[in-house]
Each structure stands twice: as C-alpha cells, then as structure tokens.
C-alpha cells in the first residue's frame, strides 16, 4: 500500500537525480582536465581553489555572466528549446538506473526510482530523442558550421544507435528481461562482460560515438567546423550543451556497468552491504569515465567517411555475428 513514507522516499529519489545530473558533470569536467593534463605531461588547472578544485565553478560563473546571444537570422523558439532537448533526456534516463540493490532502512527501499519492465527500451527511446538537440541547435542557428555539425551528429547518432541496440540485444538474449534490475541480478555469478565480450566492445564504441566524444567527435571537430552544432551558443545555453555531454557520458558508463560489469555486484562488507554495493557501482562507472578521458588523450580524430564505414561495414556485422553466437549458446545452454 502506498503511504506518506513511500511518497516521501520517491520525492527524495527524484530530488537526488535533479541534484546529481547537473553536479556530477562539474566534477567530471575538472577530472577530465586534470587527467588530460597528466597524460600530456602538464599539471592541469591549479589556480582556483586548492588543487584547482573550484575551476569548473569559476568557469560556470563566467558562463553565467556572459551575454546570451541569439542569432538574429535564426529561429528564436527552436534555438531556445534545443539545449533543453539535450539535458532533459539525459536526466530522465536516470529514473530507471539502479545504483544499488534493495536495502533495508526501516523498510525495503530499492536504490532506483522505478523498476520499469521496459527499462532498456525506455533508455534507447530517450537516446533516440537526444538527437533532436543537435538537429534543432544546428538548424536554428542559421550558420553553415552549425548546420554541418548537426548533419554530422544526426547521421552519426542514428547509425551508432543501431549498433548499440544490437549490442544490448545480446544481453537481452541472456536475461530474457528488459528490466535493468533483473539484468543486474542475473550477473550475480558472472559478469556479462565475459560471455558478451564482443557485445561489450560494440556497446562501448557505439556509446562513445553516441555521446560525440573523441575519437568520434566529428560533429564538433574544431579544425574543420569551428565547434559544430553549438557554435552560435554562448553563456548558460552553451553550458547546457557542455553539461549534457558529460551527463550523457556518465549515463552510458553507468549503463555499460549495468549491462556488462555486474552493476552493483562486488565483494561486500557484511553489515553495510547496501553502501558497499553503491560504492562498487560508482567505482566501476568512474573507471569507465576514465576510459573516456584516456581515449580522448590518446586517439586522433577519425575522418568522417571512416566513421560511417566503421559503423556500417564493421561494427554492425560484428554485432549481428555476436547476436547469432549468443543465440546459439543460449539454445545449447537450456
């Protein structure tokens, strides 16, 4: 039965998402700059606050104080809506991400907002909606660089969405459930990263391409098209694009942990299983975030035709082969 406590718990969970989704990118931006600095034999930001900790905050204040410029020849309404289409899906997806098991604090509380039985499809649907951000931004800016960026982004995201879906299908064949909580529970003994190693590769590469990150950051390749679809954006609206990029990386990392790396499972300390589980989940997710930064520091950007050929001629067939192998193994198992 639903009582006042249940409602309160739900509100707290929703608030937690509202706080974590905008705040986590602040930390990641600093982490990325520090790690990139170290990899490139630099120190990284170290002026604002101790060890440069307040750098992102200072940047945020700077962006907030800047003029919010809207291109006069552009489309005001669409220009205004585009950043929202970037941030909102990234936040909405967290509603189904389980960060830990069911814990007992007076009553049984699942460490997720809702355990949807079509959770995977819900996230893929939100991922496909996120493409409207670049499309709307690029078109409404009335600028050729922005338009090129958004055309690149659209083609890229639509293409890699397919490979990502195929990679997820491999996991679904194993679990027979769309629910993320079920998927994590089924990895209690073995992470899906072991039987699904090809699927993991396809998923991670597609995830990097979906978030428009290096080496697939063609939509914002500064040497060719200045900054891509958000070239006309300034001030807080630009900050929202920036925030969405990191929020999406965080989401893809969390999803990879849930689908392939056993979610919250790990060695737990008796008595505080709930807390250690959440720590395991965060540790795994942060490790994948580090891979993102690492790739950016070490790999050069691909050419556009290479990017598309890689998706359609290599990744998609690989994903389908993986799906076939998985299906055969699954039949042999049962």
């Amino acid at each position: 039965m639903v009582d006042g406590w249940d409602v309160l718990i739900l509100v707290i969970k929703a608030l937690a998402i509202f706080i974590i989704v905008p705040v986590a990118p602040l930390v990641f931006v600093l982490a990325e700059r520090k790690i990139l600095g170290r990899i490139q034999s630099r120190i990284g930001p170290n002026r604002v606050g101790p060890w440069g900790l307040l750098q992102t905050l200072a940047d945020g204040i700077k962006l907030g104080a800047k003029e919010d410029f809207i291109p006069p020849a552009g489309d005001r309404v669409v220009f205004w809506l585009a950043p929202l289409f970037m941030v909102v899906p990234a936040a909405m997806a967290w509603a189904v991400i389980p960060i830990g098991p069911e814990v007992e604090i007076g009553r049984k509380i699942g460490l997720w907002v809702t355990d949807l039985n079509v959770a995977i499809l819900y996230i893929l649907a939100l991922g496909s909606v996120a493409v409207y951000g670049p499309v709307m931004a690029g078109w409404s800016s009335n600028s050729k660089y922005a338009l090129f960026g958004s055309l690149r982004s659209t083609a890229q995201v639509i293409s890699y969405e397919i490979t990502m879906g195929v990679a997820v299908l491999g996991v679904l064949v194993y679990t027979g459930s769309f629910s993320l909580v079920d998927i994590v529970e089924k990895q209690k003994d073995m992470w899906f990263a072991i039987p699904q190693v090809i699927g993991l590769f396809v998923f991670l590469v597609s995830g990097i391409a979906e978030t428009n990150r290096a080496p697939f950051d063609l939509p914002e390749a500064e040497t060719e098209i200045v900054a891509g679809y958000h070239v006309e954006y300034s001030g807080m609206r630009f900050a929202m694009f920036f925030l969405a990029e990191y929020a999406n990386m965080f989401l893809v990392s969390a999803l990879a942990v849930i689908l392939f790396f056993g979610g919250w499972h790990g060695w737990t300390i008796p008595g505080i299983e709930g807390l250690t589980s959440v720590l395991w989940f965060m540790l795994k997710t942060l490790a994948l975030m580090f891979v993102y930064f690492w790739l950016r520091a070490t790999l050069p950007r691909l050419r556009y035709d290479q990017l598309m050929a890689f998706c359609w001629k290599f990744l998609l067939p690989l994903g389908i082969v993986n799906l076939l192998i998985t299906a055969v193994l699954r039949l042999g198992w049962s």
């Binding site: 079509v118 499809l121 893929l124 649907a125 496909s128 909606v129």
Partner: peptide, 14 residues
Amino acid sequence: GFLAAVQVIVYAGA
C-alpha cells in the same frame, strides 16, 4: 509501455 517505447524509437527517433 513496450508500444510506447517503440513508438518513440521508430517515429520520433528515426
């Protein structure tokens, strides 16, 4: 929910 997700993926997303 399945139909809703497919509706968004196919129509809005593609």
